[in-house]
């Protein structure tokens, strides 16, 4: 959604229009759910957190100032909730991949290559899940939420260099994983 559309959406939400709520949910539920799911790796918990994210967005919409992107603002709320949730859960996230209803990935039709790709993706997902918490946080905020390193550093209360260095370590580890699984 472009900037002017977002501005209009925010104004309508601030005026309490119910149609704007529909638009908000329809446009952003996928993106936010994906972000939350990558953090939490549990469908049911992700659904609860998504609902809470939208509630917070509605509650705070009047305090939203048009400084950054609206998407970034929403992603920050979602990521914060996911991080708080993981902190309170105090255990390593588990993969419930079988429970996940997913869109079929487009691409090769060859069953062997499809299986191979699925395997590689699954391993990559596990590799991301096994990253140290700080590195995973930066990786997902950059890759899934689309926050810039400046926004990530502000969000996490660290310097840009620290955020970049965490990303670097994460990338290195994931590259090693990819190299191991690729033929």
């Amino acid at each position: 959604m472009d900037k002017s559309k977002n501005k209009n959406l925010v104004e309508r939400l601030q005026n309490g229009e119910k149609r704007a709520v529909d638009e908000l949910v329809d446009s952003y539920q996928g993106m936010l759910f994906q972000l939350i799911f990558r953090f939490v790796l549990d469908r049911y918990e992700s659904e609860d957190l998504l609902q809470e994210t939208f509630m917070r967005i509605i509650r705070r919409i009047n305090s939203y100032e048009e400084q950054g992107r609206f998407e970034s603002w929403m992603c920050k709320i979602a990521a914060n909730l996911a991080c708080d949730h993981l902190r309170s859960r105090k255990r390593k996230p588990l993969l419930y991949h079988d429970e996940l209803e997913t869109k079929p990935s487009s691409g090769k039709d060859n069953p062997a290559s499809l299986f191979q790709e699925k395997e590689a993706l699954s391993l990559l997902e596990k590799a991301v899940a096994s990253l140290p918490w700080e590195q995973r946080q930066v990786f997902l905020l950059r890759e899934e939420a689309g926050l810039s390193f400046k926004e990530i550093s502000e969000e996490l209360g660290v310097s840009i260099n620290t955020a970049l260095s965490r990303m670097h370590y994460a990338v290195k580890k994931l590259q090693n994983h990819l190299q191991r699984i690729s033929p």
Partner: peptide, 24 residues
Amino acid sequence: LTWKRQEKPVLSEEFSGKIKRKLY
């Protein structure tokens, strides 16, 4: 590019409706 090929979790229509009602 590999990460982008990840399968995307999809929400059911029913769940979207539930969220919308809560937000109303």
